[in-house]
Design a binder for these strands. Sequence first.
RNA 1: GUCCCCGUAGCUCAGUUGGAUAGAGCGGUGGUUUCCUAAACCGCAGGUCGCGCGUUCGAAUCGCGCCGGGGACACCA
Length: 578
Amino acid sequence: MDTIRTDVIGALVAAVPGLTAERARELLTAPPDSAMGDFAFPTFAVRDRFDNAPPPAVARQLAAAIRKPASVARIEATGPYVNFFAEPAVLARTVLESARAAGARWGATDLGQGRTVVIDFSSPNIAKPLGIAHLRSTVIGNAIRNLHAFCGWKTIGVNHLGDWGTNFGKLLSAWEKWGSEESLKERGVEFLKDLLVRFTEAERADPAFRQQARDWFRRLESGDPEAKKVWQHFRDISLAEFRRVYSLLGIEFDSWSGESAYVDRMAGAIAELEARGLCSESQGAYVVDLTAHGFKEPFLLRKADDASLYGTRDLAAILYRRRDLGARALVYVVAADQKLHFRQLFKVAELLGVDVEPVHVEFGLMRIVNAEGVREKMATRKGTIVLLHDVLQAAIERVHEIIADREWDAARKSRVAHQVGIGAVIFNDLSRTRTRDIDFNLQQMLDFDPETKAFKGETGPYLQYTHARLSSALRKYGKEPPASVDFTLLTTDEDRAVLRQIGRFPDIIRDATTRYEPSLLSRALIDLCGEVNRFWRNQRILSDDAALTDARILLVQTARRTLRTGLDLLGIEAPEEM
RNA sequence: GUCCCCGUAGCUCAGUUGGAUAGAGCGGUGGUUUCCUAAACCGCAGGUCGCGCGUUCGAAUCGCGCCGGGGACACCA
């Protein structure tokens, strides 16, 4: 694809006075429809070189004047654009040969050059169940981690657990009053959540509770063995439950260092701030004043009661990740409602002169439509929480219904149900633009047609199904496709459309990575599959014509590998049969 | 009150960072399987791009002002 693009740019530079190759590369786009060509050059951008003639006239003039490179079949003026049609056989050869040469790394660009990036994602709070709201950070973060690793970054995926803070004072205090080892064993995190909710309610009625919670948190912060022991127990129980869900999702972390890991580093971070004269007292709290930097509110380091705050732990974590882990970039995959916090945090890090590039990859809130039909943010204490585990199980169950009458053994059914059900849930999230809010709707998430018993439309299963189809054709072909085929046989509209989608892949990967936007990849895969399925429908792959079969099977193999790589990066399994 | 995000077909969403006739999926409706997986493919119907003004050769996209939804605004994370 790139070699043809370079040819087109060369021809344009020769024909347009004063046009540089760089500028031409910027301007050259793709037409909205492959029937209109493979490259499009907009003439309004160079109108001034042609006496400000109307763009369509410039397009016609240029189309006639440009010397056609060998890799270009046709040049056409369409409205204000000059459209270039790649020589189909050259298109086929360039795309398929570069994909083959790249192998499993097809689509990758070395953006990271071995640098380290810490990606902070999922990060649930201990003693609260994993809700559906945690899905977003978890799957978006995982995809971003995969994309960065694919593009040459050394990635460290951190689950920055919320395992410290004032809430633990409440929890320890509640445990002291109403704790029951038996209930804990039986109901796990759910019981801890109930304790917390009960305590929060009691606290509203009786302010004495507040002081007790403070005392417990102080004990915990000062290393009291009893407090620490109970805390550790709660943490272990929470983690065991979290791991079950992560394992369903197929997601792993390189580190589970949560907030508690930075407790001992807070003093050092504060000392550095003090050394630069950045700290002050305000309303009894210890803060960094940021009014000189456009913030109304200060960044809080310690509460008036001397207890630590999460911002300070976050700051200590930045120092650790930069200095001890060698991170050059820090990515925080956290909902948009914490935007202000991260702006402040990054500013404070900057004031400390930390040489690192921090990014808050924000995403829209998962809202729930409550009983009165009003959308609102989900909250554990309002009881408006939908358990992530339940949603995943529901998805798996749904697929079980679909494949019930397949003649497969139970293990296979269960494997496919898992792959497809989880894939549906993950893709549902990753196919949307990050920043949009989502109204949680299980019905819609698992939308399927009860008549035909099938998922429909732009879904994870659609991608997986396409992958299974391609896999099936390759299985039937039964051998490794030849390295070289007759590329002049791959010139139908369907061939070209599939080749075009495959050819876009490296650009897509690069954009999705640098913009932290997995949905770009999701949608590109939808486009790829659309073309693949049209191709599948309209032409026969395996036929008596050996040369044609070889050529098409190479296209099929390349399409499948591209799709497979894309699904891997999104964290979605690619079944060979379904 | 201040600031941030969002508003595109009945529903859910794209729209390549200002360009071609605003596109998909679902739902509706009609069709496609002697053949590699029909969880697929094709046709039809469906639009005041929230409203107004402005910038521009050109605006869904940029600016300003309204309207509507969501969120943030120091001792929670």
